[in-house]
């Protein structure tokens, strides 16, 4: 059980969004200084930002990071702001068959039946639960690529078009992918899809282009309840480290030994 006393719930909780401490302290400090310096000339329209962006990512050292995400299921309100933001930030096709992240709703009935749905990934809201009085438990679960340490998708890619970066993010090389879809078959989580226009595998990148600029992934940025927590997996003072210390963690489908780096707190047994 979560030590509620130890975890400052509700009040004063540090979510990456509000604290603005996206990656780690060093990056955060640098970021604030940069932002402070950059802000005023920007306001006057003197400096164009792309130059600053390039400058920011130039100082990024992938070997100093190792990313993961925490998801507190009991905090998810199913608003799907994350899904919407992800589609915008990453140009994910709008059709309801392509998602880097999506929200599932679980409805567990007293007789043991489990009903799951995710209409349009949760983007358009969820229809009312049928027979609402006859519900044992019901909750939302955000899903995304687990950025496994032992990813089957990377293992099966015949040409090396999908890979783990040094900072632990699983990416797809759009210019090298041959579109054989083996990685989609190999992913146990349904986290990959075939991009309808690019004809290559598409997936969550942990918003890698944001990470290198010291920002958190878009879904984490817009999560209003702090259900998603992002940061370094290993022992640094980041929100994720705190999340991992104060919660009992679970991962999805642990029996497959994919070693996911998306850690769930308060996950129900029926989620898979």
């Amino acid at each position: 059980m979560t030590p509620d006393g130890a975890r400052p719930s509700g009040s004063g909780e540090v979510t990456p969004a509000q604290g603005g401490s996206p990656v780690d302290r060093r990056a955060f400090l640098g970021h604030v200084i940069e932002a402070a310096c950059a802000g005023s000339p920007l306001l006057l329209g003197v400096v164009k930002l792309p130059a600053l962006v390039a400058q920011e990512s130039g100082g990024y050292d992938a070997t100093e990071h190792f990313y993961g995400m925490g998801v507190d299921v009991t905090k998810c309100i199913g608003c799907a702001r994350c899904v919407a933001a992800c589609k915008i930030e990453n140009d994910v096709p709008e059709e309801p068959y392509f998602f880097n992240t999506w929200i599932e709703r679980y409805v567990l009935r007293p007789d043991g039946r489990v009903e799951v749905d995710s209409p349009n990934g949760g983007l358009d809201g969820f229809p009312p639960i049928e027979d609402e009085g006859n519900v044992l438990r019901t909750f939302f679960v955000p899903k995304l690529c687990n950025h496994c340490e032992n990813p089957p998708c990377v293992q099966v890619c015949p040409v090396g078009a999908t890979f783990i970066t040094e900072d632990g993010v699983v990416l797809v090389d759009e210019e090298y992918c041959i579109g054989c879809r083996y990685c989609i078959q190999a992913c146990p989580y349904g986290a990959r899809y075939m991009h309808p226009d690019k004809r290559v595998a598409g997936k969550c990148t942990f918003c890698y282009h944001r990470l290198v600029k010291g920002k958190v992934p878009a879904c984490v940025e817009v999560c209003p309840t702090g259900a998603r927590v992002f940061g370094e997996v290993e022992g640094r003072a980041t929100p994720l480290a705190q999340f991992m210390r104060f919660n009992d963690l679970q991962v999805l489908k642990p029996n497959l030994n994919t070693r996911p780096k998306v850690y769930y707190a308060n996950l129900d047994v029926e989620v898979r």
Binding site: V154, Q155, V156, C157, P158, V159, G160, A161, Y176, C177, I178, G179, C180, R181, Y182, M194, K198, R199, V200
Partner: peptide, 28 residues
């Protein structure tokens, strides 16, 4: 049929250039 099914058939030669030794399909 494999070739016709690829998203990018024109890149299929890469399987000979940079075969991922951990991939079953790369051995094809």
């Amino acid at each position: 049929p494999l070739q016709a099914h690829l998203g990018h058939p024109e890149r299929s030669y890469q399987i000979f250039l940079t075969p991922n030794t951990k991939s079953a399909m790369a051995m094809f």
